[in-house]
Amino acid sequence: MPLHHEVHGHGRPGAPSLLLSSGLGGSANFWKPQIPALVAAGWRVVAYDQRGTGRSPETLKADYAIADMARDVVEVLDATDTAQCVVIGHALGGLVGLQLALDAPSRVAGLVLVNAWSRPNPHSARCFDARLALLGAVGARAYVEAQPIFLYPAAWCAEHADVVQAEVDHAFAHFPGEANMRARIGALRAFDVDAQLGRIGVPTLVAAAMDDVLVPWTMSQRLAEGLPHVLFDCVPHGGHAHSVTDPEPFNRSLLAFLGQQLPVS
């Protein structure tokens, strides 16, 4: 089944497109704070709902892997006549970008990795154990109610309580099912390309927030140490989804990186 995808802007001749790949939620809507700024700056933007999520419904196989998700991106690139892209990936979406750069390097002109990682770590494993236990014992409603705890800083959640609750209600209404969620979490937990980082030679922006409670910022630091051509942008606040909670400085950093490393002629 074709994946839901959308194209924004037209770009300029010779410039790669930007492929937006979301985290565990899988929805193109995650990137609403970025798309207008990217299009206004002259970029062609491709966003998609990942397989088994949102507007790309499908039952995933139990052993669904990040490599499968990277092949899904090739499908989206082909469907949108996108020869080459910069993958901008949040968390799981960043893992997809890393895998694509290894498996189909000719399709990747650059990477932006937001609170991502190259190998498992015990803290994130503990968080996912707790989330899966909640899903199994109490159900989807409790799982999505707990989700903002891992995404956003507490003060931001309190200040934006109505927005957070609306997001939770939407996530529950469109929950992809326990089996799909377990398959997706299993895929990201199994991901390990740490020993292969030196093979990824494209310009890369690694973005992290030090108060991310799900993924330690030191995992981004490890990416910055292992990748050959990297800019490391680490901010003190914003949480796991700091591109959402504080989008303006994130967008400035993103556009500066794109303009310097992949200038639009």
Rank of each mutant, 00 (worst) to 15 (best):
A41D: 14
G42H: 06
G42S: 09
G42Y: 06
G42I: 12
G42L: 08
W43Q: 11
W43R: 15
R44E: 06
R44Q: 04
R44F: 01
V45L: 01
V45K: 00
A47V: 15
A47S: 15
A47M: 06
D49C: 03
D49Y: 03
D49I: 01
D49G: 02
Q50P: 00
R51A: 15
G52A: 05
T53S: 10
R55S: 03
R55T: 01
R55K: 12
P57N: 06
P57M: 09
E58M: 10
E58G: 05
E58K: 05
E58V: 11
T59K: 12
T59G: 03
T59C: 02
L60M: 13
L60G: 10
K61S: 13
K61H: 14
K61I: 11
A62P: 07
A62I: 08
A62S: 15
D63F: 11
Y64V: 13
Y64G: 02
Y64K: 02
A65L: 11
A65Y: 06
I66W: 12
A67I: 00
A67N: 01
A67H: 03
D68H: 06
D68N: 09
M69C: 11
M69N: 02
A70C: 12
A70N: 03
R71M: 09
D72W: 04
D72K: 08
D72S: 04
D72H: 01
V73H: 00
V73W: 01
V73F: 06
V74N: 00
V74A: 01
E75Y: 03
E75W: 12
V76P: 08
V76H: 12
L77H: 07
L77N: 05
L77V: 07
L77C: 13
L77D: 02
L77Q: 08
D78E: 13
A79I: 10
A79E: 07
T80G: 01
T80N: 08
T80D: 02
A83G: 11
Q84W: 02
Q84V: 14
Q84S: 13
C85E: 10
C85S: 15
C85D: 07
V86R: 03
V87H: 10
V87W: 05
V87A: 12
V87F: 05
V87N: 01
I88D: 04
I88L: 14
G89F: 13
G89P: 05
H90Y: 09
H90W: 13
H90R: 03
A91D: 14
A91V: 06
L92N: 07
L92Y: 10
L92P: 03
L92M: 15
G94A: 09
L95G: 04
L95H: 04
L95D: 11
V96A: 05
G97Q: 07
G97D: 07
L98Y: 00
L98H: 02
Q99W: 06
Q99D: 14
Q99V: 04
L100S: 01
L100C: 07
L100A: 11
A101K: 02
A101W: 00
A101V: 01
L102V: 06
L102H: 08
L102T: 08
D103Y: 06
D103E: 15
